[in-house]
Structures are given as structure tokens and as C-alpha cells.
Design a protein around this nucleic acid. Structure first.
Lengths: 162, 162
DNA sequence: CTGTTGTTTAGATTGAGTCCAAACAACGAC
DNA sequence: GTCGTTGTTTGGACTCAATCTAAACAACAG
């Protein structure tokens, strides 16, 4: 039951920078600058991963990012993609989504939540009324809350309509 | 290999459905009755898993349940624990919690949410104001929402206090 | 340009979970 | 009680995600 495809594009694919870089690598000086501004060294692997995440759009697994980065001409290893994603999330440039199976990543944007369709398996964004974290508070006296993530499950509009 | 050495007695066969037993041993008649009431066959594996989940309490991984079930004297295979947990969740007798890493399970109780401490890694329950699902609704017109799970992250009272 | 220090790499490794077909047991029917 | 149907269990091989390793390497401050 529920064949569950990969996460689809709930986002229009983010257009890549029209001007191609002379070095033939994904991610140009702009990407490098954002990495440094976030306190990270602007290594080739991190630039490729960030660029891949942006050009893919949506919620992607590490494997998808790896493929996209390599397809983009970068020479990146699997381990580096995991390292880079970890660092990007820690630096606030990317977000992780808790999903069963493989973890999914997306470029950072204002705080929001996710809807996972039980039929097509696609994940889509759900705006957060508050827009920043933590948007909910647990009834847990003494706790220090960093964030509250909400995962909705059900049938997406497309699957519910048919 | 060593096919002659299989552990022979998988089903203790101390089950007698004719008269209602009142004592609640692990995997006893009471547990069996709840399984049947939920539409499941009362197999030894499922009784052991449900009993283990209950005696352990809290939010447990499949591995922990397996160990507890085996420690409790039952002869259960790993695959059966996964099968049983899947079935218990489907039948509404147990709940899954989406956590990074291994999935966690708990005996069913009124709808609630979870707090995951980033320091000690412990998970605790957070009451849901609504108490039934779906307790939140996404701004996603046309979607059919089954449930909304909230995962809080931060420092639990114990870790925040020190 | 150079040194320090953080990063990358391929491959081995761990860990969670699934798949398989044959053996087996639950339970309604008799 | 016994039987037959049908659902379950089994262990081992397997898949897939993710981490670990130590040596080679590259970023960037000085």
C-alpha cells in the first residue's frame, strides 16, 4: 500500500544563476560569501551542496543532493555531502525535516511546517502562523524550548480531489 | 545452519480461552483479549511485544522492545517485532513517534505530542490541548488531514536547570 | 607564500528496517 | 476435539542511510 514516491516539487524550481561561472563549479562568489557570512569556510563541497539544494528546491534527501551536485560538475563525495548538510543546518543556511526514512533538507526560509501526503508521499510546506520559532510552547515547566516542528499527515489536495 | 538446534517451543500454550483469567502475566489472557478486540490474532509474538511495550513504558525503539521481550522469556525474532509493532500501530494499540535515527513506539494513549531534549536525548510527553487528532489544521485548502504531530526540541527541565 | 587548522576522500563499517519462502500456529468450522 | 484455511513467524540475506577512519588536501590568516 501507499507506494510513496519521492518528495515532489512543491516549489517551482529555483532558477540557477544565469551567468555561468568561469571555474565551472556550482555556486559562485555569491554562494561563497554567504557561507563565510555564516561562519563557514567556503569549500568547494559546501558551495556545491548549497547550490544544489537551491537549484533543486523542495525537500531533498542527501542522495538527491549528491546526485545533483555531481551532475552539476562538482566532484563531491558522499561523506562530504553529509558533512556539508550538517554544517549548513548548524549554520542556519539549511533546514532539516524529520521524516521517516531518509532525512530531508531544504534551503533556509522563514519558519514553517510540513504536510506529508499518505498517498503520493509528497511533502509540501505549510505556512506557520507565527513565522518564527518556537511557535508553540509545551506545557512543560522549566523546559527551554528551541523550536516546535509540526508534521501534518493526510491526503494532499491533489490526492484528496481525485 | 544447525537446523536441528532450533528453539523448539515458541508458543507457551498456557492460553486457555474458555474461562476468563484475571491475573495479568506477560502476554496473558488480558493482553490476548485486547489484541483480538483490536482485530488482530493473539499470537505469541504480538503478546510479547505488547507486554514488553507496556512494562517498559516510555518511548522505545524496536531493538529495546526486542530485548525486553526476549528477556521476558519469549522467543521472538527481530522481524516479528517489526511486524508486530507495525500491526499494533495500525490497529491503534500503539503509537509511533517520528524521531531521527530509530523509530520509537509507545502504548496508545490520548493524543499528545513530544519533547526531545537536545542534551540528554530523552523524550517526554507533552499534553495536547485538544487531546484528539487532528489537533491543528494546515492552511492547505482541499487537503484532508489525518493528524498533526508536534515535536518540541530544546532542553528538558532537568538539563535546563543545571 | 607559508603554516595552521579545518575539510575532503574512498572505502569499510554500523545500524535500522525489509524481504524471502518454508515452517508454523490461530481460530472458526465441523 | 480435530481439521483446514489463512495469517504469522523465522533467520538469514539483503537494502539503504549514515557514520567512521586516517591520510591527503585546501582555506585563509598572518
Amino acid at each position: 500500500m501507499t507506494p510513496a514516491n519521492r518528495t515532489g516539487r512543491s516549489y517551482p524550481a529555483h532558477n540557477r544563476t544565469a551567468t555561468t561561472r568561469t571555474h565551472g563549479e556550482e555556486g559562485g562568489a555569491e554562494t561563497a560569501g554567504r557561507l563565510r557570512a555564516a561562519g563557514l569556510r567556503a569549500t568547494a563541497a559546501r558551495r556545491a551542496v548549497l547550490a544544489a539544494l537551491e537549484s533543486l528546491g523542495g525537500h531533498r534527501t542527501a542522495e538527491e543532493v549528491l546526485e545533483a551536485a555531481q551532475a552539476g560538475g562538482a566532484s563531491v563525495s558522499r561523506a562530504s555531502v553529509f558533512n556539508a548538510l550538517r554544517d549548513l543546518v548548524a549554520a542556519g543556511l539549511a533546514l532539516t525535516v524529520d521524516t521517516p526514512g531518509a532525512a530531508r533538507y531544504e534551503v533556509a526560509r522563514p519558519w514553517h511546517h510540513h504536510f506529508l501526503c499518505r498517498s503520493c508521499g509528497r511533502m509540501s510546506d505549510v505556512e506557520c502562523v507565527v513565522g518564527r520559532k518556537p511557535c508553540l510552547r509545551p506545557d512543560l515547566p522549566g523546559a527551554e524550548v528551541d523550536e516546535a516542528t509540526v508534521l501534518f499527515r493526510g491526503l494532499c489536495p491533489a490526492c484528496a480531489g481525485s
